[in-house]
Amino acid sequence: MADGAAPVLDVRGLKTVFRTRGGEIHAVNDVSFTLRPGELLGVVGESGSGKSVTMMSLLRLLPAPPADIRGGTAMLNGRDLLAMTDAELRATRGARVGFVFQDPMTSLNPVFTLGNQIMEPLITHKGMTKRQAETRAVELLDLVGIPDARRRLYQYPHQFSGGMRQRVMIAIALACDPDVLIADEPTTALDVTIQAQILELVKELRQKLGMAIIWITHDLGVIAGIADRVMVMYGGQVVEQAPVKELFANPQHPYTRALLQTIPRISGERSERLKVIEGQPPILTGPLTACPFRARCEYRHDACDAANPPRRAIDGRMVGEGHDVACHWHAPAKAEMANA
């Protein structure tokens, strides 16, 4: 998508730490990425990899304390989100950046009608009158494929099914025409057939509205079908980043490769035995001084214990633009892939 265009969102060196009684947890370690206009960036990782915390940090949605954003910049169309005053931030959340959360059951307020909740950002951010907001809310519900929108406006969240609620959440996030939509595991709580409906909806909306989307998920299958570019996170940092086809065809980081092999497929040859990534994800009690994946890595080497590998571009382009990987050994891994 739109290669070379100025990024909508440019995050550099983001670092978030949680201060807990048991010490500090370094949840996000020096994360940098860009989001170009109209692009869908997939963010993949296991629980605890820092993918949600990264996005929540951008909008300062984490309670502080315990969360503490230690460093970095996040330029949204030239303005630094992390340096904004509270008032500026309030004007940005919902208006310039929309957020869709994982669980549509808990992110809608059960005591207000849906109309109320969709109209709220329109009245606050856009200064619409109630009547204008109502008209817009009906348009939005139509847009996300909720039939009989006008009547539905006066219903409460419990009168909607899970898939319908997630459509409503998307409608709310889209209400103010945001520049960026951040979707945090939006389909994880849904059944596969409903998930397919939502994915189809998002594809349609992208064609119609052309906004840039960040899609957080642990499901590589979802990413394969929807993303333009993928960022793989592990241990609070970006370990690999590439265009979607490149990532699946030519994964470089041992973690990405192992992850792709652990999931059984629905077509093709049935694997006799699933490949396992032994061990557990790391607990990030201090700054990373070595590769976070080394304990579970097949290619562990002295260098992996000595230093945390920086992201390196492997296709001659700038880090963040083409294919880059944070691994001391991406070259041998590549050689072995060719042999396999």
């Binding site: 994915l199 189809e200 979802v222 079908g225 699946f248 497929r265």
Partner: peptide, 22 residues
């Protein structure tokens, strides 16, 4: 329909496949 809704971790396949959206 259920099987067609499953997301395969393969972008090439995902682009080609005809999903049955219930």
């Amino acid at each position: 329909a259920l099987l067609s809704a499953v997301n395969e971790p393969d972008p090439e396949l995902a682009a080609r496949r005809n999903r049955i959206i219930l």
